[in-house]
Computed example of a mutant assay.
Amino acid sequence: MKHINVLLRNIPFTVQNDAPWAGVDAGVKGLLEADIPVLKAYGDFDSVTEDDLKLFKQSLALDIVPSAKNFTDSELALLSLAELGYTAIDVYGALGGRKDHELMNIQLLAHEELRNIDIRLLNETNEIMLLTEGEYILQRDYDKKYVSFIPLYDDTLLTLEGFKYDLEDTYVSIGRTLTVSNEYNEKNVVINTDKDILMIKSTD
């Protein structure tokens, strides 16, 4: 597994692993201020100052794109890293801030070129990932009490085993709240879905 971390914005974050880092726009500044080496840098850099940009150029090979474009900096970075062969990507700064960006960052998990990559969107209290069609046997996350499943398609057939509220061959649809705020009940849990679904683990 080829693993990398990505920082999308200059925000406080906690390093959870020793994988290399990529920065996106102001996320580059956040990494440099934390004395973290930047392996790749992406974006139009419209949210940093000219002095910041000059500093970046002294030590980094920047992939600068125009501000007027048909994709976000987040999409650019994730697609580029996928092309470079990264199969596990932890993304910080994707949640919070502007709601349009937050919603699109979540939807990027279902991008046809990204949906089969292990991408996690992380902040202090949440972890969001996409489960594609199939069966998953996962270990309980003792750091996050709640786990929710948000369907991306109507009539998603879902089975949950090892949770406080198990389901057996139950259809869930967009806008229904049946699978929100579940909890683990066993050390190992089983999830079976016939369509893409979001799995969200959260603390209080």
Score class of each variant (00 low, 15 high):
Leu53Glu: 07
Asp90Val: 07
Ser74Met: 00
Val48Asn: 07
Val24Met: 06
Pro12Gln: 06
Gln107Ser: 10
Asp44Pro: 08
Leu55Ile: 11
Tyr92Asp: 03
Gly96Met: 07
Gly23Trp: 06
Glu102Pro: 05
Leu62Gly: 08
Asp52Val: 04
Asn116Ser: 15
Leu32Ala: 06
Ser47Leu: 04
Ala26Asn: 14
Val48Lys: 09
Thr72Phe: 00
Ala26Cys: 13
Asp46Lys: 05
Asp118Leu: 13
Glu83Ser: 12
Ser59Asn: 09
Ile4Phe: 01
Lys40Asp: 10
Asn70Val: 12
Asp35Trp: 13
Asp25Thr: 08
Lys29Phe: 10
Phe13Ala: 13
Ser47Arg: 04
Gly30Lys: 11
Arg115Ser: 14
Ser59Val: 03
Gln16Tyr: 11
Lys54Arg: 10
Ser59Met: 04
Leu84His: 13
Val48Gly: 05
Thr87Arg: 11
Leu81Ala: 11
Gly30Ala: 12
Glu50Gln: 09
Gln58Tyr: 03
Leu122Trp: 02
Asp25Ser: 10
Arg98Tyr: 03
Asp63Lys: 15
Pro37Asn: 08
Lys99Asn: 14
Phe71Thr: 06
Leu84Val: 11
Ile89His: 11
Ser67Arg: 15
Ile119Asp: 03
Val38Ser: 03
Gln58Cys: 07
Ile36Arg: 06
Leu62Val: 03
Leu81Tyr: 06
Thr14Phe: 02
Leu114Tyr: 06
Gly43Ala: 02
Ile117Glu: 07
Arg115Met: 13
Asp118Thr: 13
Ala26Tyr: 12
Glu33His: 05
Trp21Asp: 02
Lys40Glu: 11
Leu108Met: 09
Leu95Ala: 00
Leu114His: 05
Asp44Trp: 03
Ser67Leu: 10
Thr49Asn: 08
Leu122Val: 00
Leu55Ala: 14
Thr72Asn: 02
Ala22Arg: 03
Val48Ile: 14
Lys57Leu: 02
Leu84Ala: 14
Asp52Lys: 05
Asn17Val: 07
Gly97Leu: 00
Ala77Lys: 12
Met104His: 14
Leu7Asn: 01
Asp25Leu: 09
Gly30Met: 10
Pro20Asn: 09
Val91Leu: 04
Asp35Tyr: 14
Tyr42Thr: 07
Thr49Arg: 09
Val91Cys: 06
Gly96Phe: 01
Gly27Lys: 10
Leu122Arg: 05
Leu76Cys: 05
Ile89Tyr: 13
Lys57Met: 08
Ala41Ile: 04
Gln16Asp: 12
Glu112Phe: 12
Leu81Met: 11
Ala19Arg: 02
Pro20Thr: 08
Leu8Trp: 03
Leu39Tyr: 09
Ile89Phe: 13
Tyr86Pro: 01
Val91Asp: 02
Ala110Leu: 08
Val38Cys: 04
Ala88Ser: 14
Lys69Met: 09
Ile11Thr: 12
Glu113Trp: 11
Ala34Val: 09
Arg115Cys: 15
Ile119Val: 05
Arg9Cys: 12
Asp100Glu: 00
Val65Pro: 06
Lys54Phe: 02
Asn116Val: 13
Val6Ala: 01
Val91Ile: 11
His101Ser: 06
Val28Asp: 04
Leu62Tyr: 05
Asp118His: 15
Ala68Gln: 15
Lys99Met: 15
Met104Trp: 10
Tyr86Ser: 02
Trp21Met: 01
Ile119Trp: 04
Ile119Cys: 03
Leu81Gly: 10
Gly93Tyr: 07
Gln16Thr: 14
Leu78His: 12
Arg120Thr: 12
Arg120Ser: 12
Ser59Thr: 10
